[in-house]
Deep mutational scan, measured.
Amino acid sequence: RTAFSSEQLARLKREFNENRYLTERRRQQLSSELGLNEAQIKIWFQNKRA
């Protein structure tokens, strides 16, 4: 289980509010910017949509 920092969570929530689905390219960008792997971001979005 991933423990996200408050900064990472704030960024993910802001991104989710703008778009509930990420393109592969956007997921790669977020992964690089947040220091998370793409799978972690993908799962976070899946869980948030559920």
Rank of each mutant, 00 (worst) to 15 (best):
A3R: 11
Q28F: 07
S32E: 14
E18Q: 11
I43S: 10
A50W: 09
E33I: 06
E24L: 10
E18G: 04
R14Y: 11
Q8S: 04
I43Y: 12
L22P: 14
L22N: 02
R26P: 01
N47Q: 13
L12P: 00
Y21T: 08
F45S: 01
Q40D: 15
F45Q: 01
A50S: 10
R26F: 04
F16I: 03
R20F: 05
E24C: 07
Q28V: 08
Q8C: 06
K13W: 14
Q40S: 12
R20M: 10
F4R: 02
A10W: 06
L9G: 01
S6I: 11
R26S: 05
F16W: 10
R11D: 03
N37C: 07
N17L: 09
N17S: 12
F16G: 00
E7P: 04
E38S: 06
N17W: 06
Q28G: 06
G35S: 06
Q40F: 11
F16T: 02
N47E: 13
L34K: 01
E18I: 10
S5T: 15
R20S: 12
F4G: 01
N19A: 04
K48F: 09
W44G: 00
S6Q: 13
F16K: 02
A50Q: 11
K13N: 15
F4D: 02
L12S: 00
E24K: 14
L30I: 07
A39M: 14
I43A: 13
A10G: 05
Q28L: 09
R14A: 11
I43N: 10
Y21P: 05
R26V: 07
F4S: 02
R14F: 09
G35P: 00
T2P: 14
G35C: 06
Q46P: 03
R49K: 06
K48D: 03
E7W: 12
L22A: 03
Q8Y: 02
T23S: 14
Q28C: 07
R11A: 12
R49L: 11
R20G: 07
E15M: 03
L36G: 00
E15A: 11
W44S: 00
R11I: 12
N47T: 11
W44I: 02
A50R: 14
S32D: 11
N19M: 04
E33N: 03
N47P: 02
I43F: 10
G35M: 07
E7F: 09
N19K: 05
Q40E: 14
R26Q: 10
S6M: 10
F4Y: 08
S6Y: 11
E24F: 08
R11F: 06
R25K: 14
Q40R: 06
E15R: 02
S31I: 05
Q29P: 01
Q46G: 06
S31E: 06
A3P: 14
E33S: 04
N17M: 12
S31D: 00
I43Q: 12
E18H: 09
F16M: 04
E15W: 02
T23L: 03
Q29L: 10
N37M: 09
A39Q: 14
N19Q: 04
R49H: 08
W44F: 07
R49G: 08
I43E: 15
N37L: 11
E24P: 15
R1Q: 15
R27F: 11
Q8K: 03
A3Q: 13
Y21G: 04
R1C: 15
A3H: 13
R25H: 10
L36Y: 01
E38D: 05
F4T: 03
R14G: 05
R11Y: 06
K13M: 14
L36A: 04
W44R: 00
A50H: 12
E15G: 02
E7G: 05
Q8T: 06
Q46L: 09
R1P: 15
Q40L: 13
R20L: 04
E38G: 07
L30R: 00
L34E: 00
R11S: 06
R1S: 15
S32F: 13
N47W: 15
T23Y: 03
Q8G: 01
N19W: 04
A39H: 13
R20P: 15
I41K: 01
K13G: 08
E38R: 04
R27V: 15
A3I: 11
L22I: 07
L9R: 06
T2E: 14
E33G: 01
R11C: 06
S31P: 01
Q8A: 07
A39L: 14
E33V: 05
S6G: 08
Q46I: 12
L30N: 00
Q29D: 07
L34C: 00
Q40C: 10
I41C: 03
K42W: 14
R1I: 15
E33Q: 05
E24V: 13
N47F: 11
S6A: 09
A39I: 12
T23D: 12
S32N: 06
L36D: 01
E33M: 05
F16N: 01
F4M: 08
T2Y: 14
R49M: 12
S6P: 10
N17C: 12
A39V: 12
L30C: 03
T2W: 14
I41W: 02
N37R: 08
A10V: 08
L34M: 07
Q40Y: 09
K13T: 15
I41L: 08
Q46V: 07
K42I: 14
L36N: 00
N19S: 09
T23A: 04
I43H: 11
L22Y: 01
R20W: 08
L12N: 00
L34I: 08
T23W: 04
A50P: 05
I41M: 03
F4N: 02
F4C: 05
A10D: 13
K42H: 15
E18Y: 07
A50C: 11
L9Y: 05
F16E: 01
I41A: 00
E38C: 04
S32Q: 13
K13E: 15
N47R: 13
E7M: 08
R25V: 14
R14M: 11
Q29C: 08
R49A: 09
L34D: 01
G35W: 02
R25L: 12
R49Y: 08
F16H: 03
Q8M: 05
R1F: 15
A3G: 12
K48P: 04
L12R: 01
R25I: 11
K48S: 09
L9K: 05
E38I: 07
Q29F: 08
R49S: 11
L30A: 00
S32I: 14
N37Q: 12
G35R: 05
N47M: 13
F45P: 00
A10E: 14
L30F: 01
R14V: 12
E24Q: 12
Q46N: 10
R1K: 14
Q29H: 06
A50V: 09
L9Q: 05
Y21F: 12
R20C: 08
Q28A: 11
Q40H: 09
A39W: 15
K42F: 12
G35A: 05
N37I: 05
L22Q: 02
N37D: 15
Q29N: 06
K42A: 14
N47G: 06
L30V: 03
Q46H: 11
S5G: 04
R11W: 05
K13I: 15
I41R: 00
R11K: 09
K42Q: 13
Q46K: 11
E38K: 05
R1N: 15
Y21D: 08
Q29Y: 07
L30M: 04
N17F: 11
F4P: 04
T2Q: 13
